[in-house]
Design a protein around this nucleic acid. Structure first.
Lengths: 211, 211
DNA sequence: ACCTGAACACCGTTCAAGT
DNA sequence: ACCTGAACACCGTTCAAGT
């Protein structure tokens, strides 16, 4: 019985979880599927095409039901959190997703939900569109860094801290404080704080813009 | 006469320009330097360490002289443009820079300049700090995508457009319009529009917040 | 239509040994 | 201190051939 494209993608995500993006190899994937590596090239023209499908699959459950009664802020916050969760759900998920723009159904639906909420918030098409990208890039950048830090072993982590200590703290006091925060504060809290601030800056109707 | 670390980094950037991130190999670099690949491991413990140095070198000329007379908005805009230029100055520069946080002098100076401008704009340390990350992530995400699109040959580019056409335009009208814009509009204009809107949302003193 | 065997042209990294 | 030769353990991809 022939193997399904969807099975390959699902198993590729399992391999990603188990071995990280470095360990995501065509040979390793083939082995898990009990086929030979070249067979994969009948289903996908390249590893990149497979990773594009993985990116789409990552967004499978995101923005499925966006509560229409919620405020625009809340809808954006909800979708943003769902995107982050989806990227975090697999090791190095953000790195897989990053890179090239993939105009597939799941990705477009996520984009649509963000832009819709922004438009409902009173933004014109242009600003809504740029704002959606700002939000996506923020999430992607945040999670790439988050998963990158998580991938460091304690030795590498300490090395980073050491490198930072070696800089003159007095020379770049603000950047130093920011770097320390990245290395030590709770990412959930950082994410919520940052995304709320980003949303709060978008001048949507109905948020406390003038206070 | 022994080779300098800085020569290796400089040549690595040249190789990046010539061959892209896929073609950036220790063997290829060694050849350009007229040494053998294993010799590089006396100077750098790993390829990643070399790429960290490349990231730092990319930021070499950024935020060197930020005009103190300019408004906060203008200073941020200037630094943002310098960062984008720096990333664009080498093929796949944004991808090299992306990934792990590198707390080196050039990187910290760039961060410092952004946070300083934000603080001068009246932001408290926390918001200034998150806003700086939002701006950095926006730029990084933008340029990764920009360079990713540039790397597509015309066949791959057309394939993306075709994939987009195959989606029901009516299903995701806003995302569709946004995707079309990414594929066809001038990146310089898109960048300026997006970053200005992002800065404009930060509620700095002295910009037209209430209009 | 779907898969394999064998091969091509590479990788990053280690390590003993050279100078 | 700095570099080499040889090797280890891999890669993505192609392609003729099998079923």
């Amino acid at each position: 019985m022939a193997i399904q494209r969807s099975e390959i993608v699902a198993e590729a995500l399992n391999l990603l979880d188990a071995a990280g993006i470095e360990g995501l190899t065509m040979r390793g994937l083939a082995q898990r599927l009990q086929i030979q590596a070249p067979s994969l090239y009948w289903h996908f023209p390249s590893k990149q095409a497979l990773m594009d499908s993985m990116s789409d699959a990552l967004m499978e459950g995101v923005a499925r039901e966006v509560s229409p009664s919620a405020s625009c802020d809340e809808r954006i916050l909800q979708v943003a959190r769902e995107i982050r969760s989806a990227l975090l759900s697999r090791r190095d998920g953000a790195q897989v997703f990053s890179g090239t723009f993939v105009p597939t159904e799941n990705v477009l639906r996520v984009g649509e939900s963000l832009i819709c909420a922004l438009r409902d918030g009173g933004l014109d098409p242009g600003p809504a569109h740029w704002s959606a990208f700002s939000i996506l890039y923020y999430i992607l950048g945040f999670v790439i860094e988050e998963q990158g830090m998580a991938a460091l072993d304690t030795a590498a982590f300490d090395a980073k801290k050491k490198a930072l200590q070696k800089m003159y703290q007095a020379q770049f006091p603000n950047a130093f404080a920011a770097a320390e925060a990245v290395l030590s504060s709770d990412p959930d809290i950082r994410f919520t704080f940052g995304i709320k601030h980003l949303i709060g800056g978008l001048r949507l109707d109905g948020n406390s813009q003038h206070e």
